[in-house]
Computed example of a mutant assay.
Amino acid sequence: MRVGLHALGIASGARPEIIRAVAQAAEAHGFSRLWAGEHVVLVDAPVSQYPYSDDGRIAVPADADWLDPLLALSFAAGVTDEIGLATGVLLLPEHNPVVTAKQVATLDVLSAGRLTLGVGIGWSADEFAALGVPFARRGRRTEEHLAVMRTLWREDVATFEGEFTRFRDVRVNPKPVRDRWIPVVMGGNSDRALRRAATVADGWYGFNLSTAKALECVSVLAGHCAEHNRPMEELTVAVALTDASPELLPELASAGVSELVVVDAPPETPNEAGNWVAALAGRWLASTGS
């Protein structure tokens, strides 16, 4: 069982000295990956309900600093050598897939192949409106964007004819480090998200779930894999839990979870941040044998 850390990019975790301290300490203490999420836009009075809390509200204040995850992880890549990097998640339908394919491959090259691309379809109608992207059919747009990006990563000269994106005989470089492939995990806790994880992704990232709900989702994911003749073992399964404790790790591992993601906000100074990571490692990694 791997343990990742979702702590970069927001509020105190948006400051370069804190990113450096957290990233270097997380690598030194054996965390598997550094995760960073995305919102381009937050609003004071949102139309849409946040789907990952009981009250429908996101915990991050609308006026908080929130870094672009690809840029934040690029900075983290530059101050580390081995720890994995993951977007958790990039809101893919809000982006141009051709530009994103290049940006993601660039980060993969700069990090020597350490990137996992976590993607989601998004939940905020306000955000889509501000970006001029239709909120409707964002799930289908996400699936097509993934196909576009994989085509550009794979082919030297690429052509694509889709509903949302069309191009012919284009070159997009660089290519990803690992045989022109970057692992993609699908975020979201709905049945549709789990089905996408089983059919078009390389894994699933469940966010802000109780342990019981996470185990239920893993079972549903396994069912979708069986329905589509895909071995569950092909997928990586990462979960961030609301009630996590080290004692639950064996149960999660036996159910098919490959990574527990600890979600927290770092303290305000680099020294405090380094000590904070060490304390988290003492709690979580001792029980994994890391």
Rank of each mutant, 00 (worst) to 15 (best):
V262R: 10
G282K: 15
A273M: 04
S258F: 10
S258D: 06
A253R: 11
G274W: 08
P270C: 09
V257D: 03
E268G: 12
D264M: 08
A278K: 15
A273L: 06
A253C: 13
A253W: 10
V262G: 12
G274I: 11
A273S: 15
E251Q: 08
P270S: 07
P250S: 01
N271C: 01
V261K: 10
V262W: 07
V261D: 02
A253M: 04
W276K: 09
A278G: 08
P270R: 06
A255M: 14
E251F: 11
A253D: 00
A281Y: 14
E268I: 09
A273W: 13
L249F: 08
W284S: 07
N275E: 15
V257M: 00
V262L: 15
E251N: 02
A278C: 07
N275K: 15
W284H: 03
A279L: 00
V262T: 06
V277H: 02
V261N: 02
T269D: 08
D264Y: 11
T269R: 10
V261L: 04
A279C: 00
D264P: 06
W276A: 09
V261I: 13
A255V: 13
E259Y: 03
V257H: 05
E259H: 07
E259G: 06
P250T: 01
R283F: 03
E268W: 10
E251H: 13
R283N: 07
G256Y: 02
G282P: 02
L252E: 12
V277L: 01
D264C: 14
A265L: 13
G256Q: 01
G256I: 00
G274F: 14
P266V: 10
V261R: 05
S258W: 09
L285P: 13
S254N: 05
L249Q: 11
E272V: 14
P250G: 01
P267T: 11
L285K: 08
A253H: 01
A279V: 02
P266W: 05
L260I: 07
L285F: 14
V262C: 10
G274N: 09
V262H: 07
E268Q: 09
A278W: 04
G274L: 07
A286Q: 11
V257F: 10
A255D: 02
E272I: 12
G256R: 02
G282N: 11
V261A: 05
E272Q: 15
A281F: 12
L280A: 08
G274M: 11
W276N: 10
